[in-house]
């Protein structure tokens, strides 16, 4: 099975081609530059290098979020539009799960996270078990301190992986102490070949039905709902 995988949910931009889970090409940058301009050239370049034609693809995998709203939309829009045009399915994978894949061969638990501003993070909990990544706690948005208290109570070593590690390193040290296990720099950056590997044995979705998993309401929507609640409260 030939797969194209794209991930633009953080500042890391990745595109990969895999055949039966074996990477054929991978294109990754870690610079904070416009994904909308650079994704299509990246895809074209790896297709040209491998000599693959769009019609050869069996499915397209995309990191579905959470992450930067605009970033996630660029990858998801590209994936679903191309998949629809080719009549093939899309396979969505959590952007956090893709990052957690970098914690393979670790013991303990893996907490991939993205900064979500105001002390919050998008995160979830995973473990590498018998050569497979297993999810222990669902992806969510949560104040980082609260999250770390929760996972410290498990009493297991924690591999925290994040492109935004620097901003959170002190908190991790403070909350986890000895349980906090450092990782090498490249493991904090998601790889599109991991996305393809995770997608390879999953069911696809029809392109029309595929949309991002933002894990958070649009700000205006959240405020509006809050206001409705207040008004209901006042009426009582």
């Amino acid at each position: 099975m030939k797969l194209l995988a794209v991930d633009t949910s953080t500042y890391v931009m990745g595109a990969a081609l895999t055949e039966n889970s074996r990477p054929a090409a991978e294109y990754i940058t870690h610079v904070k530059k416009n994904h909308s301009i650079r994704l299509m050239p990246a895809v074209r370049s790896i297709m040209q290098e491998t000599g693959w034609k769009p019609g050869d693809l069996d499915a397209i995998a995309a990191a579905e979020g959470p992450g930067s709203y605009t970033g996630v939309r660029i990858g998801v829009t590209t994936a679903k539009s191309m998949a629809w045009a080719l009549g093939i399915p899309v396979i969505g994978v959590s952007s956090l799960e893709v990052l957690a894949f970098n914690g393979r061969y670790t013991g303990g638990v893996i907490s991939p996270f993205f900064d979500a501003r105001r002390g919050q993070v998008f995160t979830g909990l995973y473990r590498w078990e018998d050569g497979r990544l297993v999810q222990l706690k669902e992806d969510r948005i949560i104040p980082h301190g609260e999250w770390l208290d929760e996972i410290r109570s498990l009493g297991e070593p924690v591999t925290a992986l994040s492109p935004d590690l620097e901003k959170h390193e002190d908190l991790l040290q403070e909350k986890l102490g000895q349980l906090f296990k450092p990782a090498v720099p490249q493991d904090h950056l998601p790889r599109p070949s991991s996305l393809a590997c995770l997608a390879a044995d999953r069911e696809g979705t029809a392109a029309h039905l595929f949309s991002p998993n933002y894990l958070r309401l649009a700000e205006a929507e959240a405020k509006w709902q809050e206001k409705q609640k207040e008004q209901q409260h006042e009426r009582k």
């Binding site: 709203y69 829009t77 590209t78 539009s81 045009a85």
Partner: peptide
Amino acid sequence: VGALLVGVNAAKAIAFAHD
């Protein structure tokens, strides 16, 4: 900008798929 990006990236992907 966010709205434009959806159309632009969809157009590029569809066009790429069929050259």
